[in-house]
Design a protein around this nucleic acid. Structure first.
Length: 195
DNA sequence: TGCCCGATTAACT
DNA sequence: GTTAATCGGGCAA
């Protein structure tokens, strides 16, 4: 029997704890200008913990994190790559979810051209890779997630979720705030507790 | 002002 | 396994 029609994520979806939003994002469909796929890996960043960009207070770079939920926070990583976050929780909480990997579904040919690779598993498996495939740049910083070019649909079926430590950080590295779809072949790195 | 380092990736040995 | 690419934030001087 066919699944129910896709439901758009509302602004209120993001007005919750990053630890509720992050697992609920797994399996959701993210499109930017019609290009994208299913979210399979995200990480939660809370302002009370030193790995968050907002930990030290507002700056020009992290200003969007201190605004209302339901907006994109995009920053430059290592001076080279772009990384996409969804701002969550009540305005001022300065907490967000980092989008780390998607399972590419539309449009594969466009994403291959933008990335310069043919291997589907390398198209969007990593925060910098998916921003290149979806052509997300600093121009998207501060844009609303429920308006063009963004389109977000809630997941339609059940998804098995695994958790683990976040990738590539040194502060608060032990916190298990990475969320992913169990067994997905499109993760940036496997989860150790894969069983 | 200068220095160090980072929510990364690809290309090395 | 290691390292270069590349630049803004944050902090010391």
């Amino acid at each position: 029997m066919p699944g129910r029609p896709p439901k758009r994520l509302s602004r209120s979806f993001f007005s919750r704890s990053v630890h509720e939003v992050a697992p609920d994002l797994i399996g959701a469909l993210l499109l930017v200008g019609g290009i994208g796929g299913r979210l399979v890996e995200v990480e939660a960043y809370h302002h009370t913990e030193p790995a968050a960009h907002s930990f030290g207070g507002p700056t020009e770079r992290n200003a969007v994190m201190f605004g209302p939920p339901g907006y994109a926070y995009v920053y430059r990583s290592y001076g080279i790559h772009w990384c996409l976050n969804f701002v969550c929780e009540p305005a001022g909480s300065a907490s967000a979810v980092l989008i780390r990997a998607i399972e590419p579904t539309a449009d594969l040919a466009v994403m291959r051209r933008r990335r310069g690779v043919t291997d589907t598993r390398l198209l969007c498996s990593g925060p910098g890779r998916l921003c290149e495939a979806l052509r997300i740049t600093g121009a998207h910083n501060g844009l609303a997630l429920n308006e063009p070019p963004f389109t977000l649909y809630a997941r339609s079926g059940a998804v098995e979720i695994v958790t683990g430590p976040r990738i590539g950080i040194t502060k608060a590295a032990a916190l298990p705030w990475r969320y992913g779809e169990k067994g997905s072949r499109f993760l940036s790195k496997p989860f150790t507790q894969e069983a």
